[in-house]
Design a binder for these strands. Structure first.
Lengths: 316, 316
DNA sequence: TTGAAAGCGATACCAT
DNA sequence: ATGGTATCGCTTTCAA
């Protein structure tokens, strides 16, 4: 093993004890100025750096926050991550990326690691295990999730999707749009987001979306293109396409353009560059802001707190 | 402090010693099948999880790879990160995000932490301290950088920018384009990338780029917009804008469109969605691939290896 | 095959 | 103000 200089080397060479060296290291008081200087000097001479691991073990703290994310394909995850990184910049804490792929075993593993003090806290951007399970583990350390937990007792920072969804559908209704088609990533029963989207539609339009106008499993530019194609080929002509992402609806748009077909009214989500460039209406959920606040909240670690971040509908 | 069940609790309850429990935990041999089972049983009964920190301290290894990145604004960094996360998915290693903001002190801190075994390896997407300094620290553990290190003895995975740059300028020259304007992020003397870009131009065009046609400090869509504006207002009319990013050149494009001015020929970099959508020529550097390979390389940790990833010029 | 004991490198309490 | 010592939880010789 690599030979490292330890606190004891400093102690011996300086003539003081390890305890005193530790005090100097941690800028504690009860150390005379001369002692402090003498020890500092030896530290520099020997080019000594304290071991984080040993400190962690001794203190039972790590200055590490675990950041669980299923993948890096969706801007929801990468933007939350960006926000969290931004927030971590200003603190001595580090972010440890914990990939999950929605795999329950992996998630449990991370939760167990929280239990064994490997992290001072955990942020779940999304999760495969039930929210209730996450909540159970909060007794071992702060856990933040990034969705509205409703009744489940767990801290959360999440997009108040309802606000913008309501705005959007109200606007569409006023403009006399009908036949709204949906691109969703996951089925309604599996995804709270899908549920909320369709729920808002039902509330405003006061009717059930047509089955054939609801497409799930659509998550990329290509998927969007393909989905539009299928609709066109089956003679399905929505007046509006309400999509779960800017890049996705951009794909659909391209299909219509490629075939010289009239464009439906398009609504994206996430206010990314693609919708700005192409002048497509969208919903801004402020994901980076969510990431930022999630990180701040995990450090607070006092009881349960739920923070909703307002969303807005952007008409273009 | 939280009371945790330890290896000794398992030892006591099972009637065996901590050593044996440790052997079971680490799947080592020299443990009889019954003993193993008996201990496994107690582990499950007590719902025991070993402490990573204690293991790390004892072993002097962490299963953590530090990932140093200046910020999350530029796709160069976020895409490399995405690639690295992808690669980490398949391994037991974790990625620890280390924000640097090009701050030398922070970078040194991370290097020192490598020295003190806080990480098993370090990936530098970019750096403020000189490459030589990074190279010095390789004796404490594997370090990978994401640029061509030329003579400096350090492992690297980087874009072979020269290939695509040569293609691009050759193409432009053949098409009789002149008056090439540049958007760069940092000055030529500070940035290897800028140097390589202008160097390729000089090589092909056999002349010096005009001073007023080289703009530095341009890194975002807005910067691009602003830069175009300044040129227009000063009567500077490039035939080509060669930009350091798709989103950036997209900003310039917008300015010309907003003012009904003829568009210069545009070249972006990174092959992002924006250039695809707007049909802008670009250079594909395959950053996610670089991230992926950088992670794989840091785990290999045998001597110095330099891997160049080919780049391509995409004409649109 | 199993166990005892000595680290790993710090911190923190209790004396002095 | 300083030092001694136990402790954190696990790994790893070395003996038995």
């Amino acid at each position: 093993m690599k030979q490292v200089t330890t606190i004891h080397d400093i102690a011996k060479k300086s003539g003081y004890s390890a305890s005193t060296v530790s005090r100097v290291l941690n800028r504690k008081k009860h150390v005379s100025t001369e002692t402090r200087q003498a020890i500092q000097q030896v530290i520099e001479e020997l080019d000594y750096v304290p071991s984080d691991i040993a400190r962690d073990l001794s203190r039972g703290k790590t200055l590490n926050i675990g950041f669980v994310l299923p993948n890096t394909k969706h801007p929801f995850f990468t933007e939350i991550l960006t926000g969290a990184i931004d927030a971590a910049f200003k603190t001595p804490y580090h972010l440890v990326i914990l990939p999950s792929e929605y795999d329950e075993e992996k998630e449990i593993e991370y939760l167990e690691q929280l239990r064994s003090n490997a992290y001072d806290g955990l942020i779940f951007t999304s999760h495969g295990v039930p929210l209730e399970k996450l909540a159970e583990y909060t007794k071992y350390g702060p856990i933040i999730c990034c969705e509205d937990p409703y009744d489940v007792p767990i801290s959360a920072v999440y997009a108040k999707r309802r606000i913008a969804l309501t705005e959007a559908f109200t606007w569409l209704k006023e403009k006399q749009y009908n036949n709204v088609g949906f691109f969703l990533s996951r089925e309604e029963k599996l995804s709270a987001t899908s549920k909320e989207t369709l729920g808002a539609y039902r509330r405003i339009f006061k009717n059930e979306p047509e089955k054939e106008l609801v497409k799930t499993g659509v998550t990329t530019y290509k998927d969007g293109y393909q989905a539009a194609k299928e609709w066109v080929e089956n003679g399905i002509v929505p007046e509006v396409i309400f999509s779960n992402g800017d890049d996705i609806v951009t794909g659909a748009r391209q299909y219509y353009l490629d075939h010289n077909l009239p464009l439906p009214f398009l609504v994206g989500q996430e206010d990314q560059l693609s919708s700005q460039l192409l002048n497509i209406s969208t919903i801004d959920y402020q994901f980076t802001e969510i990431g930022r606040q999630a990180f701040e909240l995990v450090l607070k670690a006092e009881g349960i707190e739920k923070i909703g971040i307002p969303s807005t509908f952007i008409v273009r």
